[in-house]
Design a protein around this nucleic acid. Structure first.
Lengths: 261, 261
DNA sequence: AAGTGGTCTAGACCACGAT
DNA sequence: TCGTGGTCTAGACCACTTA
């Protein structure tokens, strides 16, 4: 009987697995707005009955949508269309005044951060540099560097990891070793120490989060993270800072403006 | 008998599902280098025997690693540790001369693109603007715009989607409507048409790819994509171009340099 | 107490690529 | 032909949250 069913459906959509057809159907309903943000999807059992398949098969279809980031599973409530609330992230804004054109204003208004309560945890430690950091600070892998680790939160939910690394000899005995907020900013401390940054190189890439990042950011799986690595150099070309930012991609959009030559 | 096994293991790592323990073990072996890039993992059947679980359970563990992007499944060969080969993507480089400091040179040498054969397909069409494009071009959703769609490839594998959109009245009857390479560049055409771009806004975010993107870029699932939206404005503040780039995150790293005020 | 998703089993057949 | 992963079934028990 199931064989007959499968043959019939296969005529309609050949070479598509049942769980893919289920996912396709739900994806269409989401895209068309039939299932708006926050809406509850059919339960696994309901889908299984509707499509005449085993529960595991219906489950595979839902899993596909979860992996695509369209849907979240909330036990024991069900599966829901996932909302997407983006927060502005402007690397240029952290340090220097930025040209504010009317267009940029428009973008900023679109993604407002009104009435949010920011907070952060700070932790400073001496650690052996991992290969990625060592390469950028131009020290031997495993050499001891100062790591100033922060997790920033807004309204209690973690929004980003911000781990700044400094060569030990540059910042030892300075305020940067102090695990507390530095009102004038760590970059000003570097200037006072005689290591003013002249230029920085930004790198961006994305990947799935590591288990450690999932833990520190309280992520649901299936949310990619954007890695923003920012390395600062003195005028002489010496790297004095390497900041490793981890941004959950469902909470951030990176925006910047530049003149067009 | 399996019950006894499970109790014993649960004492060692309480509250960890069997498939998670399997994934953890394999992840450690990959991180430590015991399983180097390209190495073949145990088969599903072997893992099931080794851990005394059903094949489906071992399979769940492997699936976790695939979803994390650490591993690829290649039927009928097995699962393999996934390589990661990054290509430089420099949005600033596309149009204007860029400050080339010694540090930037170093980065560029690190990720070389020697001996690669680039190619691209171009397709031009009139399409109704989707909401995202319409918002940025400041036209009504559904208004007709010119879409110049490109898929760029290197050595035959697609590396990025590059869809530029223009307001119809700006580019109608111009070279931009011609689905062929424009040697002097589309931006020069805009200048000649009297719509020189004065400044651009860049936006970056990441998410899992849509089925359409998976198809156009020949992606394996579980690779996030980076979306780079670049909107160009005339000096009067009119948007005249909106380019929608899709970059597979396992093939690209975005690099840029800026002066530090 | 009820109903959800999370995990697991012990089978089965298939498509595909190498040999 | 053989072994791989891909798909599927028909059960089972559990953890969790809300009513």
């Amino acid at each position: 009987m199931f064989e007959l069913y499968k043959q019939v459906v296969d005529q309609l959509r050949p070479s598509a697995a049942a769980y893919r057809r289920i996912a396709d159907a739900l994806r269409s309903r989401i895209a068309s707005g039939g299932l708006p943000v926050g809406a509850k999807l059919p339960t696994e059992t309901e889908l299984a009955e509707e499509y005449g398949v085993a529960r595991q098969t219906a489950r595979e279809g839902l899993r596909l949508l979860v992996a695509e980031g369209l849907v979240v599973a909330r036990r024991p409530h069900g599966h829901f269309v996932k909302p997407r609330e983006l927060m502005m992230y402007r690397p240029q804004k952290e340090s220097q005044p930025q040209p504010e054109s009317p267009e940029m204003d428009r973008y900023c208004r679109q993604i407002t951060e009104e009435g949010r309560v920011p907070s952060q945890t700070i932790e400073v430690s001496l650690v052996p540099a991992n290969p990625e950091i060592a390469k950028r600070l131009e020290v031997e892998p495993g050499a001891v560097v100062v790591a100033r680790r922060r997790v920033r939160s807004i309204n209690g939910t973690a929004t980003n990891i911000n781990d700044s690394h400094y060569p030990l000899e540059v910042v030892k005995d300075s305020e940067i070793m102090n695990p507390a907020d530095i009102p004038r900013g760590t970059n000003q401390v570097l200037i006072d120490l005689g290591y003013a940054q002249d230029r920085v190189i930004d790198e961006f890439f994305a990947r799935m989060p590591t288990p450690d990042e999932i833990h520190r950011l309280s992520l649901e799986g299936s949310t990619p993270v954007i890695i923003h690595v920012c390395t600062g150099y003195t005028e002489a070309g010496r790297p004095v800072r390497c900041t490793w930012n981890v941004l959950p991609s469902d909470r951030h959009i990176i925006v910047s403006e530049r003149k067009w030559a």
